[in-house]
Amino acid sequence: MPSTRDIRRRIKSVKNTRQITRAMELVASSKMKKAQQTAIAGRPYANLLESMIANLAPHFDESESIHPFIDKREIKTRGVLLITTDKGLCGPLNTNLFKLISDSLPRTTPVKFVSVGRKGTQYLARMKRNMIADFPVSDGVTFAETRNVVQFMVKKYLEGEIDTIEVLYATFKNTLVQVPRIRPVLPLENLAQAVEDLRKQSGAEHKCDTREFIYEPNPKAVLDALLPFYVNRVIHQYFLGAKASEHSARMVAMKTAKDNASKLLDNLTLKFNKARQTAITNEIIEIAAASFAQQS
């Protein structure tokens, strides 16, 4: 049986661990709420973009080639943006993403990856997958940071190096559940799909604008300017969802670690009390035995 000194040292170590995990849980909770608020703050922008694209759609015959983002092409090489975390301690979040890669994107499929997050970059390098770039993104997930990533992928898409733009990330379902998914972004099937995607993201009811608009210099030029904003907006929203999932997963993992530390601390305290009681009992027995020996 370990001595009381060893048990006391272990109790102190577990208390320190519980204190650290408690602090990390609170930090992750605060960051998760901030990421959710940022996502909600972008809804007015999505509503306006959706309204403008919806009003532009009737001006085009979608059977014709009106923009490279809408043109159908033969898919030879898929382009996948992998969004993972820079740090660990977030449960099975990254592992589930890597499992989805092995299940849905086997080596036989021509895929070029763009990685955001150190864990994803390390995985792709370790598995020797075709990674053409990696980008850092801060916890704040600014639009300028995500725009750099999007511009790089759009450039590769227009040059024909990749034939799709897809985003692989952990969707935020609720605090306890984060589901890994692959979301296609380009090519678009039509303008109606773009409008529907923006409506889902905004979460607001669609209000039909019956006013007549005049587009200068022409509807085609306005559409050419709007579609890049659409792609930036959609992928930026995926980044915000991935960050919320990361902080949520880390908060749950740290809460579980804290609870386990509390249970372990209770067991160690009980063991310490038993060991101390045993030591006291042995000392009393020794004193009584010595006293009895002297009397006899």
Rank of each mutant, 00 (worst) to 15 (best):
L124E: 02
I101R: 02
H67V: 08
N96R: 15
P58W: 02
G140N: 15
L48H: 11
M52L: 14
S51G: 06
C90V: 10
V111Y: 06
K112Y: 09
S51K: 15
N47C: 12
N55V: 10
I101A: 01
G79D: 03
V150S: 02
S138K: 05
D103T: 13
F98R: 09
S65H: 14
V80P: 06
N130S: 10
V111N: 08
R73M: 06
S63D: 03
T108S: 15
M131R: 15
D71P: 11
T77K: 14
N94H: 08
P68Y: 01
T84S: 12
R147H: 02
R73G: 09
V149W: 01
E62V: 07
P68R: 07
E74D: 12
N47D: 14
F113L: 04
H67T: 10
N148T: 13
A144D: 11
P92W: 03
R73V: 12
I132S: 09
C90T: 07
M52S: 12
V137C: 12
D134S: 15
K128S: 10
G79M: 06
S65E: 14
T84R: 07
I132V: 15
F143C: 00
I132A: 09
N96E: 14
T121M: 11
R43T: 14
F113M: 05
F113D: 03
L97Y: 05
F98Q: 09
M153G: 01
A54L: 04
V111L: 05
R107E: 13
G91V: 05
F98M: 12
L100P: 04
I70V: 14
M153V: 05
R129E: 00
I132C: 09
E145V: 05
I101S: 08
A133V: 00
N130P: 00
T85W: 09
D139C: 07
L82E: 02
S102R: 15
T146V: 07
P44Y: 00
E64R: 15
F143V: 12
I101V: 14
F98N: 06
D139V: 02
S115Y: 11
L82G: 03
V149S: 00
